[in-house]
Design a protein around this nucleic acid. Structure first.
Lengths: 146, 146
DNA sequence: TATAATGTCTATTACATTAGTAGAGTTTAC
DNA sequence: GTAAACTCTACTAATGTAATAGACATTATA
């Protein structure tokens, strides 16, 4: 799990769409402006999010993007996994990691696992509906980066 | 915080030195062999760890490396911070991040902060003495990668 | 005092990832 | 039929990762 610019942009964009759930599609241009994201970069990000099943698109004149599901059905953990990769801090928790000959005996493994569990627990409890509420509560119509 | 090969090698090496605390210096060659680390890479890593104050060196014929402090005085959190960078998953928790115009209102900030706190709590409670004990307990003289 | 075994230091390299940019194509409301 | 939208593929510059290379400095001891 690594929050890069791309993953940050992805999260902001989904939140923006969540805030406007049930309304007209939002254009890439509008989303880019709201969160100050380079438009050509956002195009790619939205295509990824679409492939991930988080957003839907409408093509043509009055096209744009929409959230694919109700914000309450989109968990932060699944989104983070998709946009920021596995929660694990890599190393031996990662399945691909083959450096430890006797992996069961590695004393660090427990630590990474604990951190992974704690992180997942925090993310698991949050949906985008929660985030929308939180956003509205503390900021009126501020949204996030506008 | 990112556990790369370098940080993994660093942790293994410190644990190895912790296990042999109070004994003769351990040579780079020996450390490299024990943990299967490219020797020239380990040279650099050990110089870093020395600059960080975690290890000491003896030059010359019967030289090698030693832990700079008693294993009970070396916390896992400080070592992880040194070898794997800040615990935060970057984004707006990072001081350098300036994308959020009204940072107090960012709804994700809280989440990253919670994860950071939880991670720090886990790492804070562990010293290398704990890891040595854990290692001895479960594996006799296995150590970690040998 | 020579020498072998050790640590020290600076450069270089191959590869992958990140954060974009560029441009041509497709769809649809009007 | 055209403007306004999304779609797709390719390219690039900068940075980070994981080494590798080679010359140099120090010290125990034969």
């Amino acid at each position: 799990m690594r929050i890069t610019y791309k993953s940050d942009y992805s999260l902001k964009t989904i939140l923006n769409l969540a805030i406007h759930y049930g309304e007209e599609p939002v254009t890439i241009h509008e989303l880019a402006k709201r969160s100050d994201i380079p438009i050509k970069f956002l195009e790619q990000i939205l295509l990824d999010l679409k492939r991930g099943g988080f957003v839907e698109s409408r093509r043509g004149k009055v096209g744009g993007y929409l959230l694919a599901k109700h914000p309450s059905k989109i968990g932060l953990l699944e989104v983070v996994r998709f946009v920021a990769g596995p929660v694990e801090p890599i190393a031996c928790v990662d399945k691909k990691y083959r450096r430890c000959r006797d992996i069961d005996k590695c004393v660090f493994r427990d630590i990474w696992q604990k951190i992974t569990n704690a992180t997942e627990k925090i993310l698991e409890e949050v949906t985008f509906e929660d985030l929308v509420k939180k956003s509205r509560k503390s900021q009126g119509n501020f949204v996030y980066q506008i």
